[in-house]
């Protein structure tokens, strides 16, 4: 009979943590911050097809760093859970907090029960009626949840990036300022000898949860709109373009929401004026 070597539980957990932490630190970073018009996600991503930032539900977005297959699995799980709850109850009953809790359970179980933990760190963000009401949760490989009011950074040299982000972040920033801040924070590390570097627009994945929209608020900012935002000159124009045809509306919870249909409120819009996508 083969002898089993004894390893203390403490040692096992430490080893798993180290594995996960190393895997996450190797990857590129992502930042999430709230600004005047919503919540902004910026991730450094060389691929334009494999997303690190995506939509979960009407007012909930998802960002992740680490191993793609692992966080993609978590993202799909989140979409399934949100859609199931939205169908069974109502669209308003799908919240970021519930989703963060579910992710914490899943990640915690994987960390303790499986031989290899997920090498991922994820962020669940829900856009509120005001920047103060935004909810940003950070979930780490071991299932711990942190509420990060205002802004957060993960992956790569997350601490340095978070420091740069937090020093200059304000809730009432415009979209252009927020994108610039996110970019300067992301590029503040990783150059020669720890110096700053430049990141091109095509290496960024940018998306927002637009506070002023009804229904599905998630929008990707790509191509010309993104370059315009980064250049800053046409910033105001680009911001207008991302807000598209919609005149700013404050989100309206409650009684006007249709209950017969499971379509999002922007499709079921019964107000006068332009509706649709």
């Amino acid at each position: 009979m083969a002898m089993q070597f004894y390893a203390s539980p403490e040692q096992i957990m430490r080893d798993r943590s180290e594995l996960a932490r190393k895997g996450i630190a190797r990857g590129r970073s992502a930042v999430v911050l709230s600004y005047e018009g919503g919540v902004l996600f910026v991730a450094e991503n060389l691929s334009s097809a494999l997303h690190k930032v995506s939509e979960i539900y009407d007012r909930i977005g998802f960002a992740a760093v680490g191993r793609y297959n692992e966080f993609e699995n978590l993202r799909r799980a989140g979409v399934r859970m949100a859609d199931l709850n939205g169908l069974s109850y109502d669209r308003r009953d799908v919240t970021g907090r519930a989703l963060a809790n579910a992710y914490a359970q899943t990640l915690g179980a994987i960390f303790t029960e499986q031989s290899k933990p997920f090498e991922v760190e994820i962020c669940v963000a829900e856009v509120g009626a005001t920047p103060e009401a935004d909810e940003i949760y950070r979930l780490t490989y071991d299932g711990s949840v942190n509420d990060e009011p205002g802004c957060m950074a993960m992956g790569g040299q997350a601490d340095a990036i978070a420091g740069a982000l937090r020093a200059n972040h304000r809730g009432d920033m415009s979209l252009a300022d927020a994108v610039k801040l996110a970019l300067s924070a992301l590029s503040s590390v990783g150059g020669e000898g720890g110096a700053a570097r430049t990141i091109a627009a095509n290496q960024l994945e940018v998306a927002i949860l637009d506070r002023r929209r009804k229904g599905r608020t998630f929008r990707r900012i790509t191509g010309a709109a993104l370059t315009a935002l980064l250049d800053g000159e046409a910033a105001a124009k680009a911001e207008e373009a991302t807000a598209r045809d919609e005149t700013p509306k404050t989100p309206e919870p409650g009684p006007r929401k249709p209950t017969a249909s499971a379509a999002s409120a922007d499709l079921e819009d019964k107000d006068p004026g332009p509706a649709g996508a």
């Binding site: 997303h51 995506s54 979409v79 859609d83 249909s261 499971a262 379509a263």
Partner: peptide, 17 residues
């Protein structure tokens, strides 16, 4: 069925992008 179909389309869109 209609509610289910609406969620079906939105779900596919979100999962597959």
């Amino acid at each position: 069925l209609m509610r289910l179909f609406q969620v079906e389309l939105e779900h596919y869109e979100k999962i597959e992008g």
